[in-house]
Structure formats: structure tokens, C-alpha cells
């Protein structure tokens, strides 16, 4: 069995700060991590490998520094890693990204047929959740998003049954491989990297592909040219015209503050008082 896991290196968004004066992002010192949502998919792929044997290939598109994210995945237990990197990809939106990744997966297929492709349900930097479905459509894979559980996999019959999170419930879906799966967060826990895997990850000769190696001939499908969406402006959110009315008391005593707040709140919003009084019985 061969599983490809698509991952992305992202800035740890919890640590991004906006400069208070210039309103620009302060990228310096923000650590790059593997998109946390991707790890649930990687762990699920590794579990399938533990059970059925086979190979797990991790794939990413990004700048050369994304190598670190792939090595991290190798340390967790992935077997192979492919970095697709080329200046021609700069400015790719989700449509162009799915084109490039789909093309790279076709090249990976040349080596060994792919049964399953995993992707994160979304990234923490783009938050679009579009690349997974995009790859599935381009490669004509069955699409299984927001999977909470892989119920069964029959490699002989090429059948897979999963639980999929839907609005208001869970769908139990049965389909054929090859399929593309995005895992729901929190459904498994990433294993610890083992010593031998860490050593292997450090020494592993990464496959680094430019657009040609990734099988991309049509450059109008990638980068800015291949991206229908255009960012027309980037801006910092502004304060409302009116800032918060600050509750202060001379004593600074929490009880005084609380009572001052309540008085102000219920005088200015009498409806709220009724609403709370009604419900909190």
C-alpha cells in the first residue's frame, strides 16, 4: 500500500504579532511548524501503514526551508519525502496549488501506485480547506473530508469505509480507493518520534523537485498566472470609532468594580437585565 500525505509548513500563528504602529506583520522569530491539522492525517496514515504495511510518502510545496517540515514528518515515521519548490510557484492560490500538488502526485505514482492521499482538513495560515478537495477533483479521487474514523480498509477489494463529520451528525460512507482523505482534528494523537527515525530523518536524501521534475509543463496553471483570485488589499483591522467604556473605581476593590459595571450595564441595556433575569432562574 502506498499513501501520500500532503503537508504544509506554516508560521506558528499563535506567535505572529502585528506591529502596533506600522500595522505590518512581524515575522521575525516566528517559528515555522508543520500545519497542526496535517499531523492528524499523517498519524492516521502511519497507523494504516502499521496495520497493512507499505509506504508513506510526505509531499509539500513551498520554499526550500520547508525541508524542515518534511524531516519532522520523516522523524515521526514517514518513509519518503518530496519537496516541490520553484520560484514559478510564487503567488499560487488554492487552485494553482492543487494543480501543482496533483501533478507531483502523478510523478510519485510513476514509482509506486498510490492507494490513498491524505491532506490536512485546512491550514492554520490560509484556513481555506480547499486544496484537499482540489487535488481530489484533479486526480479523480473519491473525496472524504472531515473523517473522524477509518472503519475498515480492504486492499484486495479496494474498499474503504469511514465516518465523516457532517452538519448535525456523522455519515458512514463506503467508497473505493484511490481516495483523498482529510482527517478531523483531535481524532488521534501524533506518536513520538523514535531515535532511529530521527537519525534517519536527518540523513535522508530529500527529493527536491522543481516544476519540471514535478511534471508541470503549462506554466499558466501555476503561480500568479494560474491563480484566479487576486489579493487586492491587505489591511489591519481598526478599532471601532468608540473604544470601550472603562470601569474604574477609586478603591479599586473588585466588589465596587463589579457593582459599578452592573449598574452601568443594566441602566444602558435594560433589555439585557430582563433577558438574564428570565433565563437564569
Amino acid at each position: 500500500m502506498h499513501i501520500v500525505v500532503c503537508i504544509k509548513q506554516v508560521p506558528d500563528s499563535a506567535q505572529i504579532r502585528v506591529h502596533p504602529v506600522t500595522n505590518t506583520i512581524m515575522r521575525q522569530g516566528v517559528p515555522a511548524i508543520v500545519n497542526p491539522y496535517d499531523l492528524f492525517s499523517l498519524e492516521e496514515a502511519l497507523r494504516l501503514k502499521d496495520k497493512y504495511g507499505g509506504r508513506v510518502t510526505v509531499l509539500t510545496m513551498g520554499p526550500p526551508m520547508a525541508e524542515a517540515a518534511l524531516r519532522k514528518c520523516l522523524a515521526y515515521g514517514a518513509d519518503e519525502a518530496v519537496l516541490v519548490t520553484d520560484r514559478a510557484f510564487a503567488g499560487s492560490d488554492t487552485l494553482a496549488t492543487s494543480f501543482a500538488l496533483a501533478s507531483a502526485i502523478r510523478q510519485i505514482q510513476n514509482d509506486m501506485a498510490v492507494d490513498l492521499v491524505f491532506a490536512g482538513k485546512q491550514t492554520i495560515d490560509g484556513d481555506t480547506a480547499q486544496v484537499g478537495p482540489g487535488i481530489a477533483k484533479r486526480l479523480d479521487l473519491q473525496l472524504l473530508t472531515y473523517v473522524s474514523k477509518i472503519e475498515s480498509l480492504d486492499l484486495e477489494k479496494r474498499e474503504i469505509t469511514v465516518h465523516r463529520r457532517a452538519e448535525g451528525g456523522v455519515q458512514v460512507l463506503k467508497t473505493k480507493t484511490p481516495a483523498l482523505i482529510t482527517m478531523l482534528e483531535g481524532v488521534n494523537e501524533m506518536r513520538f518520534a523514535t531515535m532511529p527515525n530521527m537519525f534517519r530523518a536527518a540523513r535522508y536524501p530529500l527529493k527536491v523537485w522543481d516544476k519540471d521534475a514535478a511534471g508541470i509543463e503549462d506554466v499558466t496553471k501555476i503561480g500568479l498566472k494560474g491563480s484566479p483570485t487576486i489579493v487586492s488589499k491587505v489591511f489591519a483591522p481598526t478599532a471601532k470609532s468608540q473604544k470601550a467604556s472603562m470601569i474604574e473605581t477609586e478603591s479599586g476593590d473588585p466588589r465596587d468594580i463589579a457593582i459599578t459595571l452592573l449598574t452601568k450595564l443594566f441602566t444602558q441595556h435594560p433589555k439585557l437585565e430582563k433577558e438574564i433575569g428570565k433565563r437564569a432562574a
Binding site: 488554492t94 487552485l95 484556513d127 480547506a129 482540489g134 477533483k137 457532517a166 484566479p228 483570485t229
Partner: peptide
Amino acid sequence: TLGRDLAGSVATTLKTGLTA
């Protein structure tokens, strides 16, 4: 979950832009 699954697939099939 439905809308995102569907929108991503439809936009890719139509080769058009989608903003999430």
C-alpha cells in the same frame, strides 16, 4: 462541512476562484 467540501470541488471543476 458540506459547503466547504462542495465549494472546493465545484471551484476546481469549474477552474474558477473561491474565497473561503
